[in-house]
């Protein structure tokens, strides 16, 4: 019980803060609770498949296989798979991070994981269909044409800036994920 309280202390603090807001500024406080409820519902809806996929991937996909398709020598194939994985998934970007964790654990190349995160945040096909209907196909296609090279560039630069030692640390952290 003590452990739970300790782990969730920030959650409790923010809830208390929100309740104080509700007392002082009822409309904003209420709005905040409603927004959180909507987001929580969305999160709980998308979490089960995402985390089940993480578990399945972790247990069934051999490290060697993953290294072959997305590892250091995977070249353009690895890049394309990273893009596709990020683009077809549904769910807000914060769900992408635990998924990125298991990709790292399995030996996915660092820059490919960054591409995966970028694709998950910017070139998501499920949301883009909606984007095209609201802002037009031209808007969406131009954005894609610009976003794809930019995401590659971001991954390339991040990969160059982060040192070997720091990457080793990240992979070590991923290995200890359970």
């Amino acid at each position: 019980m003590k452990k739970i309280i300790k782990r969730y202390k920030f959650v409790f603090i923010i809830i208390i803060f929100n309740l104080i807001m509700l007392l002082l500024k009822p409309d904003i406080g209420m709005n905040s609770i409603e927004t959180t409820a909507v987001n929580l519902k969305e999160m709980l809806c998308i979490m089960p498949p995402v985390f089940l996929l993480i578990g399945i991937l972790d247990v069934w996909v051999e490290r060697e296989t993953m290294i072959k398709i997305m590892g250091n020598n995977s070249g353009i194939v690895g890049i394309v798979i990273a893009f596709l994985l990020g683009s077809i998934a549904a769910g807000p970007v914060y769900v992408a991070f635990p998924f990125a964790g298991v990709l790292l654990k399995k030996g996915t190349k660092f820059s490919n994981v960054i591409i995966f995160l970028g694709a998950w945040s910017a070139t998501k096909i499920p949301i883009s269909l909606f984007e095209a209907s609201v802002l037009g196909w031209k808007f969406m296609l131009i954005r894609y044409a610009l976003d794809i090279p930019v995401l590659l560039l971001i991954a390339f630069i991040t990969d160059k800036v982060v040192s070997k030692k720091e990457k080793d640390m990240i992979y070590e952290k991923a290995k200890n994920l359970d």
């Binding site: 920030f10 923010i14 803060f17 709005n31 609770i33 987001n39 635990p98 994920l177 359970d178």
Partner: peptide
């Protein structure tokens, strides 16, 4: 892996709610 990240998820969700309100 869900339970590990849950406290952080919930905290951020609440902060997002406050900011968006």
């Amino acid at each position: 892996s869900f339970e590990n990240i849950l406290p952080l998820f919930l905290a951020i969700l609440l902060i997002v709610g406050i900011i968006l309100s």
